[in-house]
Computed example of a mutant assay.
Amino acid sequence: MSRKNLQIKKHVMTGISYMIPIVVAGGILGALAKGFGGYNIGDAVQPGVTPWSNLDPFSWTGFWWGVNQIGSYAMTFAVAVMAAGTAYSIAGRPGIAPAFILGYVANDTKAGFIGGLILAFAVGYFVNFMKKWKVPKWMNGLMPVLIIPVITTFVVGMLFTVFLSQPLAFIMIKFQNWIISLNGGSKAIIGAVIGACMGFDLGGPVNKTASLAANALGADGIFAPWAAKLIGGMTPPIGAFIAVMIAKKKFSREQVETAKTALPMGLCFITEGVLPFAAADPIRFIISSVLGSSAAGAIALGLGCESPAAHGGVFVVPMMTHPLYFLLALLVGSAVTGIVYAVLKRPETATDEENEELDDESIDFDISVE
């Protein structure tokens, strides 16, 4: 692997290392809230002046609604934190603020993980470009805290807004409408398509578009796509765990530990737990993920599974139509992902291990002003 590619991998993995604890905390809290408070706990408290105005935290419903709300906030900022961490790895502290802001923009525009990553690299390289500017001495102190964050956020943010946000929105709307149009045909086909999309970019625009299509159909009382959405998002993390168990010698120590964390995240419908695998080995893992998620979606919907909830992971399985078939499809799809990835995975070398150790060292914050 070239030095440049190693640097890109290091930047991505640094950003992901900051994001994963937020995803774990937010996802687990949300899953617990839905497990104990009900799959629709997010709608259990009517908002007042603020979302918290009518909350009674000492009631069972109010307590778990609060837990769910905290988890939702955490997931909202996951892409922003990832973008900030990636830009920090590229450009140091001046890259954190603009990347965090624009990472949130990426999440809000449904550009997701991929959009946040693109913006993070754009911010990082633009900040490095600005660091080379020759400015008067009196401006040196203002550069990292005022001039660089403001100009970078404005330039990179507006470039994204003007040239990428609208075309991306147009493409995703057309894509979403196409997925919805499939509902009139074979259930297995729409299950395979939604499942494949959920497993493709693991929280990115394709994943989000399929999720929104399933939500739109669910709002019309068509609940089978929700089952495909759930199973498509649960399969990749469980499949990664299976792959590591099958071919443990092919994976680094860090990847083994990541897979152990990914298993409960997958059961809770937190697909982002496998982003370290996708970032380190995108082609092989995405192929494996798409195959497993599409197989799981096709089997689940083909056997008549429906879900009354769009979130909740294993906590909502008992409420599904044909829950045992859903679990069977989940097992088969996860096994497909795990076996295919175990076969395709290139064994980690000593050089890879050394590079990972160097990457781990880069994760620590350097609080010196740059």
Rank of each mutant, 00 (worst) to 15 (best):
N177V: 15
G204R: 01
A210M: 13
L182C: 13
G221L: 05
S181F: 04
I194A: 02
V206W: 00
I194H: 02
A213H: 03
I194E: 02
L182S: 11
I222A: 00
G221N: 10
T209I: 10
G185E: 10
K187E: 10
G185P: 05
A192T: 06
L202I: 15
C197W: 01
V206N: 02
G191R: 08
A219G: 06
T209W: 04
A210S: 14
L202N: 03
A214H: 03
D220F: 05
A210V: 13
A210D: 11
K208T: 06
G184C: 13
A192H: 04
A224E: 08
N207P: 00
L212F: 06
K208P: 01
G218E: 01
G204P: 03
A214F: 05
C197V: 06
S181W: 04
C197G: 08
G221R: 04
F223V: 12
D220E: 15
A213M: 10
N215V: 12
T209Q: 11
I222F: 04
N183T: 11
V193M: 03
L212W: 03
L217V: 11
S211K: 03
I194R: 01
N215C: 10
G195T: 06
F223L: 15
G199N: 04
I222P: 00
A216P: 04
L182T: 12
N215D: 14
L217K: 13
A216I: 11
D201C: 05
I189R: 00
N177A: 15
A192C: 07
G203Y: 01
F223R: 12
N207S: 05
P225L: 08
G221M: 06
V206K: 01
N183M: 13
A214E: 04
I189Y: 01
T209V: 11
P205E: 10
A192F: 07
N177Q: 15
P205N: 11
G221V: 04
D220T: 09
A192W: 00
V206R: 00
G191E: 12
G199P: 02
M198D: 07
G184Q: 13
G185K: 11
A224Q: 07
G199K: 02
N183I: 13
A213S: 10
L212H: 06
D201G: 07
N183L: 09
V193Y: 01
A188E: 10
F200N: 00
L212Q: 11
L217A: 12
L182M: 13
G218D: 02
L182I: 12
N177M: 15
I222R: 00
P205A: 14
K208R: 06
F200D: 00
M198I: 12
A192E: 05
I180S: 11
A188L: 13
A214D: 07
G203M: 05
D220V: 05
A219T: 06
F223D: 14
F200W: 09
F223G: 09
C197K: 00
V206I: 15
W178K: 10
I180C: 14
F223W: 09
N177L: 15
G195Y: 02
F200P: 00
L217Q: 13
L182V: 11
S211Q: 04
S186E: 13
G195H: 06
A219E: 08
D220Q: 14
G204V: 08
N177E: 15
N177W: 12
M198H: 14
N215Q: 15
F223K: 14
A214Q: 07
C197A: 11
D201Y: 03
K187A: 14
D201Q: 08
